[in-house]
Design a protein around this nucleic acid. Structure first.
Lengths: 213, 213
DNA sequence: GCAAAAGTGTTACTAGTACACCCATGC
DNA sequence: GCATGGGTGTACTAGTAACACTTTTGC
């Protein structure tokens, strides 16, 4: 037998820490373990549509997700070939904050450095997706999907510094993104800060794909 | 119902043209059309293993293949959700030459600029995989998988010039690859040429991932 | 010895890095 | 008015791009 599972891996960055959204498994096997949100691939909908439905169940509606790859969990059940189709999304802290409300299942954001015991091969999956993310932010190509709108350059910089584990000069970081003509100002400012409010940006409709790091 | 198909997309470059391997479909639907080699995902083997089997059937044994992504062909048959798992490989002209022998099915290398009528969504798949390839050769990360050994720098350069549709200075191209310490000489030379034989190289076991283009 | 393709080094320019001061806001 | 974080310009350094001649082979 064969089974196709859609696995959703949502990332965010809070206080310089990369975090993933996990939910608590309520049934055996692996009862009480944490896992990535998942759903069986529907026969009546495309993979993308099924994953959108899953996002809605988690109360995220405006998150862009990106299909990464598949992973075969051939070991899980003898005679069963389980194929995980991986979707990755990236949320800013505002969207995470809006999602604090109660759900029927336990959910929590875990730092990728302090992951709990996870069900199935989900630990492996998270690591694969982190690599995917790390690689993707090195080029401009799909950054607009990960960062839909309303981010400040210091915020964006923290994402880079955290994920790539490097330190970047603020002025040079600005220069890079503005020089390559990737961004436009929204005209808004982020006032929820101690110091001077930061300008908010969004990616342009069309920009050239360049290598950033 | 749900069905998982492994689709194999082999590329090569001959005379500055990017080519893909297609086989002729012998049964309805799309009888007589060309298609990518494919196989149903086995219940008794991982996706990777199934794809290796398919390679053997095509008489390619030493080709590295790389999993790209999935594509959902939800429209193909009403009530059927067909999930294509895409594998991509890259062959040098020597391996292509070795594969000229007869097979029970018709196979042919088509230039990506002159593709024939193709079955299902395979045209779309080929284009997605070309983009994948194009993106991958811009970084060092998995170049060693695409170019396992025994290539000359002029050959490699032609791949870049063709796929990226640019012209590169020979000296600067060499400098880039040698400076980043990606390659080592095999000590062999390619004698099958008109002019001076070219040194053959291979990628080192370990090299740093850098942005090349 | 001539045609064909490969190998090599130097200079000019462009892009990236390092660095310090001023600015807007909250308390 | 001071603490906090954001925004800006310039000089220097390193990496990329442009360029011509020599070398090795086959015929």
């Amino acid at each position: 037998m064969k089974q196709v599972e859609i696995v959703l891996n949502l990332f965010t960055i809070v206080n310089e820490e990369v975090k993933v959204l996990l939910i608590r498994k309520q049934t055996e096997p692996y009862k009480g373990y944490w896992m990535l949100p998942r759903v069986k691939a529907s026969n009546d909908a495309s993979l993308k549509d099924s994953s959108k439905l899953m996002l809605e169940k988690l109360n995220f509606e405006t998150v862009n997700i990106y299909e990464n790859n598949t992973m075969c969990d051939f070991e899980r059940e003898p005679g069963f070939n389980i194929i995980n189709v991986l979707f990755v999304g990236f949320l800013d802290s505002v969207r995470v904050e809006l999602n604090k409300e109660e759900t029927s299942f336990e959910k929590e954001w875990f730092s990728i450095n302090k992951l709990p015991k996870m069900a199935y091969n989900h630990f492996e999956i998270v690591n694969k997706n982190i690599d995917f993310l790390r690689e993707k932010i090195k080029r401009a190509s799909i950054l607009n999907l990960f960062f839909p709108s309303d981010f400040s350059l210091p915020e964006l910089q923290r994402v880079y510094e955290t994920l790539l584990n490097i330190e970047i000069d603020r002025r040079n970081f600005r220069k890079k993104f503005l020089h390559y003509n990737l961004l436009e100002e929204t005209g808004m400012k982020n006032e929820d800060t101690n110091g001077r409010p930061s300008k908010l940006y969004m990616f342009k409709e069309n920009y050239e794909d360049v290598s950033l790091f």
